[in-house]
Amino acid sequence: MSLPAALLAVTDRHGRAAGLADTVRAILDGGGRWIWLRDPDLDPAARRGLAESLLALARAAGASLTIGRDAALAAAIGADGVHLPGGTRPRAIAAARRILAPASLIGVSAHGPSELAEIAAAGADYVTLSPIFETASKPGYGPALGLAGLRAAAAAHGLPVLALGGVGAGNASACRAAGAAGIAVMGGLMRARDPAAATRAFLGAWERGDPTGAENPPRLPPAA
């Protein structure tokens, strides 16, 4: 099963003064075609309302929407898949598969190459691996795995791996050269002054950048 796009935009409504729907609209305007609704701290009713709004935006742009954690919500609104948290067991992946539409994608968060065997055997479609680079948003997951960790994960089990954590336009293509199927980005889009321009920069870097990019990403600009 192919992935919707090489860039997965991860939402964080706390990272930006503008409304999340406006930020997602800008990302879509910039060419983004895959959105992961994260924001797990919303109450269920508010999260469903936001999910439905983002799904409408995604559909209008020909893009895909993945719902974080909640397979039941993804199934209820007809989203394109679910992304399950780190530590998810095979039975939870199987349970999500049972209630989602046949073409839905199931992703799982991983924090080391050793986790991929079980995730792949359980039938997930892809993983996000983090943190690849040092990042303030992933302080609790140990040291950065680096390109070597990404390379080891991408070479194992035939499961598409998205690089997450500290990925910037300066190292996106290095992730691709290391075997990543794509990149997942939160802060670099959610905190960008111009999310549409930032999206275009990430997409351009993935397609055309120098595959010998540095291990450490450039500093993010301050929030507007």
Rank of each mutant, 00 (worst) to 15 (best):
M186V: 07
A17E: 15
S114L: 10
R38G: 00
A103F: 12
L145H: 08
R48H: 10
L105C: 10
R200V: 05
G78R: 11
A74Y: 02
E207D: 14
R13K: 12
A224E: 15
A198G: 05
A58W: 00
S109T: 01
T66V: 14
A144G: 10
A45P: 09
A6L: 14
L65C: 04
D39S: 06
S173L: 06
V127C: 10
A196K: 06
L8Y: 04
T23G: 11
A120I: 05
P217N: 12
G30M: 02
L145A: 04
A124V: 05
A76C: 10
P102L: 13
L84H: 06
I77S: 03
Y126G: 13
V185K: 00
G149E: 07
E118L: 09
R176T: 07
G158C: 09
A21W: 07
G107N: 10
T212M: 14
G107Y: 05
L65S: 03
S104L: 04
A121C: 09
A154W: 12
D194M: 06
D70L: 03
H157M: 11
G86H: 14
R191K: 10
L7A: 06
A163V: 04
V185H: 04
A121D: 09
I77N: 04
E207K: 11
R151C: 12
A45F: 12
E207A: 15
R13W: 06
P139M: 03
L8P: 00
D29E: 13
V108F: 07
L57K: 02
L116T: 01
G123K: 03
